[in-house]
């Protein structure tokens, strides 16, 4: 059976020219056909979205869904005060505060790099919506980052916890900002 031996040799090693298994050839042909269709649909005609476009669309849909959810339950002074009166929400808020806020405001809120949250002096207002917006949007030029990326629950719970720190008057950083009556 040396009839189907190829002419070339490499270091005396010759190569047979047997037919490849049909199942193997068909997997190759089908892959070629698939890639051609994929190329035309995705890259030439553009009738289908590439992964990045799909990702952007999904992200947009998720953001819209979240916005609709939020619109149903808008954050108001009342909703924040209700959270601040809810022990379970406060426990979550405390956890968030200790793990994220305490590095600048100290575990007690007495202030270190960030201002003292327990005195009567406030840079950006002590009203529930003021505190909420400060955490949500931040004041990056003064070192307070925006925490919006951490999700609505994160911002609302931490804001609720900060509301309970007001006027606990822990001895700490010197007063900053306007005195609030």
């Amino acid at each position: 059976m040396t009839a189907n031996l190829r002419e070339h040799t490499f270091d005396g090693i010759a190569e047979m020219d047997n037919k490849l298994p049909n199942w193997w050839l068909w997997s190759l042909y089908l892959s070629c056909i698939f890639s051609a269709i994929y190329w035309i649909l995705f890259h030439t005609l553009g009738t289908e979205d590439l992964p990045y476009a799909v990702y952007i669309a999904e992200e947009k849909a998720a953001a819209e869904k979240l916005e609709a959810e939020m619109a149903k339950n808008p954050v108001t002074e009342q909703s924040l005060l209700a959270l601040a009166a809810n022990p379970a929400a406060l426990a979550k808020g405390q956890q968030i505060f200790l793990a994220n806020c305490a590095s600048c405001h100290l575990p007690t809120g007495a202030g270190s790099i960030g201002p003292n949250l327990t005195d009567a002096y406030w840079l950006h207002g002590d009203k529930p919506m003021d505190v909420y917006n400060t955490i949500l949007k931040g004041y990056p030029e003064k070192g307070m980052q925006s925490w919006a990326n951490f999700g609505p629950a994160f911002v609302q719970h931490s804001a609720a916890y900060v509301l309970t720190l007001r006027n606990t008057n822990v001895q700490g950083k010197e007063p900053q900002g306007q005195k609030v009556e």
Partner: peptide
């Protein structure tokens, strides 16, 4: 069976 081909593949490529 021989040493020059896969016995599980017929000369025409079928199984």
């Amino acid at each position: 069976p021989d040493l020059d081909s896969l016995f599980t593949v017929n000369p025409d490529g079928s199984r």
